Simulated assay, not measured.
Amino acid sequence: MLHELTTEDHRAIDRTLALAGHIFDLGELDRLEEIFTPEAVYDLSDVGAGTFEGTAAIRNGALALGAGNPIAHRLTNIVITGHEDDQATAQSKGLIIMADGSVGSVTHRDTLRLENGSWRISRRVILAQRTPLGGLHLTHAAER
C-alpha cells in the first residue's frame, strides 16, 4: 500500500534526523533505537570510520571511536528526495565540530522506514565535502 507523505510525515522525518545529533552529542547511545531501525546500516567509510550494521554495532563503533567522535553535529538543509510505500529517502547537510576546533562538512544520504507509526533511519551514508562546488571549479580551471 502506497503511503503518501503528509506534513506530519515530513515533520517526523525532520525530527528523527535532527534527533540523531542530539543523541550522539549527549552520548545517549542507549537511545539509538529512537532513530535507527534494529538492522540499520551506518556507512561512514567515506570518512574512514567503516560501516556498521545494527544498532549494537553502531553503538560499539561510536564507543570505539571515542575522542575521535565530533563534539557537535549540526544538521541543516533537509530535502526528502523520494518515497515509496513506507520508505522515504532524504538528503541533508551536516557540520561537525571536533574537539580540536576543526570543522567539517558532510552530506547525509538517508533511507528511512515507517515502522509502527515512527520514521526510523534504515540506512545512513555520510559523505565528506572536500572541495568547493563539488569540484566543479577544478573542471572549469582546466578549461581555461
Rank of each mutant, 00 (worst) to 15 (best):
E4F: 08
E4M: 07
E4C: 12
L5T: 03
T6R: 05
E8H: 15
H10Q: 12
A12N: 07
A12E: 02
I13N: 00
I13W: 01
I13K: 01
D14T: 14
T16L: 01
L19V: 12
A20E: 05
H22L: 09
H22M: 08
I23Y: 04
F24C: 03
D25F: 07
D25K: 05
D25Q: 05
L26S: 12
L26N: 13
L26R: 11
G27Y: 05
L29E: 06
R31G: 08
E34A: 04
F36A: 03
F36C: 01
E39C: 12
E39A: 14
V41S: 03
V41R: 02
L44R: 02
S45P: 07
D46A: 08
V47A: 13
G48K: 03
A49C: 08
F52I: 03
T55P: 02
T55Y: 01
T55D: 00
A57D: 05
I58D: 02
I58A: 03
N60Q: 14
L63G: 13
L65M: 15
A67P: 10
G68R: 10
G68P: 01
N69G: 10
P70T: 05
P70W: 07
I71H: 10
A72Q: 15
A72K: 12
R74W: 15
T76G: 15
I78V: 11
I78A: 03
I78T: 12
V79W: 07
V79Q: 14
T81N: 11
H83Q: 10
D85P: 05
D86P: 08
Q87W: 07
A88P: 02
A90Q: 01
S92V: 06
S92T: 10
K93H: 15
L95I: 13
L95N: 08
M98H: 08
M98C: 12
S102I: 07
V103G: 13
G104W: 05
V106M: 10
V106P: 00
H108A: 11
R109Q: 13
T111D: 12
L114W: 02
L114K: 02
L114V: 04
G117Y: 04
S118G: 14
R120L: 13
R120T: 07
I121D: 00
I121M: 06
I121K: 00
R123Y: 05
R124Q: 09
V125I: 10
L127P: 00
R130S: 11
R130M: 07
T131N: 14
T131F: 14
L133C: 07
L133W: 11
G134Q: 05
G135R: 08
G135N: 09
L136W: 14
T139N: 11
T139P: 04
H140D: 10
E143D: 11
R144M: 09
